[in-house]
Nucleic acid binder design. Structure first.
Lengths: 122, 122
DNA sequence: ATAATATATGAATGTTTATTCAAGTGTTCA
DNA sequence: TGAACACTTGAATAAACATTCATATATTAT
């Protein structure tokens, strides 16, 4: 009985070595693929998708979004921070009220890269 | 001092009532937005993004992917299950070996919907 | 049949993450 | 100034998730 464990390479390593090496050559950098996954992650939450959808319809304040989505202002605010960090939304202050809107520049950039393109507002 | 808590609606409810109601009218169904977020979630993980990238280059078995990404076959297998459930990949068995590849039909469908479009293989 | 191999899967573990709660900042209005 | 308000934020909690480990299934070779 031969010694073997998960860290060992299975026989495919030999059989498919050339294919795997060729693919490895072409593979984008770790960083690039990580960033891509991070971007998709931002879109991978119902609350954030709803917020983005709403803001594409109309500029809105935190309270509006809370009423619209039937959530606390705190929860909305936390999610807006993530969208802000991803530069997908921007905001302007008018007295006490903070109005959020889509960051058209950044969203357009994502569309131009062809990563995500939403038809008919999702 | 007036009684107030988070579940109460703030004054914006009154100020922006019309805008919020109009947006609410147009909003897609809960289910639709949930499904959309679920789809993005699948793309929101580095390992899965790498697997998808690799499979778009070439059909590969579990062991190949494990070698390529320097991960255990078990970890790869678990992620492939998620990609299978999302119908993003399909597979064919050849003896002991299971070859995975992109489910072109499903991926094409996603592209056609315009939800995600990857340029230059990400 | 037995051994070896390729993959799959359930349970356990550690990490990430969404929401809540409580407290904090900055603005308006009396 | 101080009370009310809109929003933010840090910590706590609970749920979701990725990976590992151990085991199971299925196939091939002896």
């Amino acid at each position: 009985m031969m010694e073997r464990n998960e860290s060992d390479r299975c026989d495919c390593k030999v059989i498919h070595e050339d294919v795997v090496n060729a693919v490895k050559e072409k593979m984008p950098s770790e960083e690039k693929l990580y960033d891509l996954a991070e971007l998709f992650k931002v879109f991978g939450d119902t609350t954030r998708v709803k917020i983005l959808w709403a803001l594409d319809e109309s500029e809105m304040c935190v309270c509006d979004l809370a009423v619209l989505l039937n959530m606390t202002r705190s929860a909305i605010s936390h999610q807006l921070r993530i969208l802000r960090q991803a530069r997908l939304v921007k905001y302007r202050k008018e007295g006490k009220i903070v109005y959020y809107s889509l960051d058209e520049e950044e969203v357009k950039h994502i569309f131009d890269q062809g990563l995500i393109h939403i038809n008919e507002k999702f």
